[in-house]
């Protein structure tokens, strides 16, 4: 690889919030544009360059038949493919349809369902093509994003921590909302990266950064039951923004009747 790093940002089914994290880099966005070539980013520029790209950041889940084709093309055009956010990495909140009757949804919402191209399931990019790195979070965290961009500019493999957010929370000195307040905090099974925001805001973590590497969702579910949550409450707690991620999926299923 020679010359400036060629970056692309692609969008699938999503809220655009992870792309907005790029646009919200403020002055650092201009620094990025001066150090790398932003070759394809339709939300930011009217000029889009074809591949190959050194790195493609992919936002959004795969949810239509057209998506299946496009993600393969992006993979073929990219040296590295990095997913950004809960949708691309775990299927997103819209993966809640994976437990429902999708055709009934379409019929309920659209008067003419035949116009709608929508697959029965919303799935992460890694179910379809090889993924080189995953930036978790709903949305991704800008400090993590900048670290990954710095790694890429320095030509080293990006390293994204997979430990529990509890460690970050303890280091920040927040009062534990699970132990001290009895709130159903998902922190023990959730990946670090957000800055332990929810405990800082005096509330329970809702798992928007997805499962940590070694969490025990079953044991945490038992703890939630002891706190007074019903089986249904425990299922809802885990089946949320990252509900299709395997660890959360299994944790929720254990409490489903």
């Amino acid at each position: 690889m020679t010359g400036r790093l060629r970056i692309a940002v692609h969008k699938f089914a999503s809220c655009d919030g992870c792309q907005i994290q790029f646009l919200n880099l403020e002055q650092d966005l201009l620094t990025l544009a001066s150090r790398a070539e932003i070759a394809h980013f339709t939300e930011a520029s009217s000029v889009t360059q074809p591949g190959p790209y050194d790195v493609s950041f992919v936002e959004g889940s795969i949810s239509t038949s057209a998506d299946l084709q496009r993600i393969r093309e992006i993979r073929a055009a990219s040296r590295l493919l990095i997913t950004i956010g809960a949708c691309a990495t775990a299927g997103g909140l819209q993966a809640l349809r994976n437990w429902k009757d999708h055709d009934e949804f379409v019929r309920a919402i659209y008067a003419r369902p035949e116009y709608i191209d929508s697959l029965a399931r919303s799935t992460p990019v890694s179910e379809h093509v090889k993924v080189d790195a995953e930036l978790w979070g709903c949305p991704i965290d800008q400090r993590q994003l900048k670290r990954v961009l710095s790694d890429l500019l320095a030509r080293v493999a990006p390293r994204i921590p997979g430990e529990s957010v509890c460690l970050e929370c303890k280091r920040a000195g927040h009062v534990c909302v699970l132990v001290a307040k009895g709130e159903p905090c998902l922190g023990p099974v959730t990946r670090t990266g957000c800055g332990a925001l929810c405990p800082r805001y005096e509330r329970d973590c809702y798992g928007c950064f997805g499962p940590q590497e070694d969490g025990n969702t079953l044991a945490l579910g038992r703890r939630f039951r002891e706190l007074g949550l019903s089986d249904e409450d425990v299922v809802r707690r885990l089946r949320f923004i990252n509900g299709w991620a395997p660890a959360f999926r299994a944790g929720a299923q254990a409490w489903e009747k």
Partner: peptide, 15 residues
Amino acid sequence: FEPPRFFEKFLEGRS
């Protein structure tokens, strides 16, 4: 052609 995400249906049954 933004794919539909069916939020109104997901909200049903949520607290």
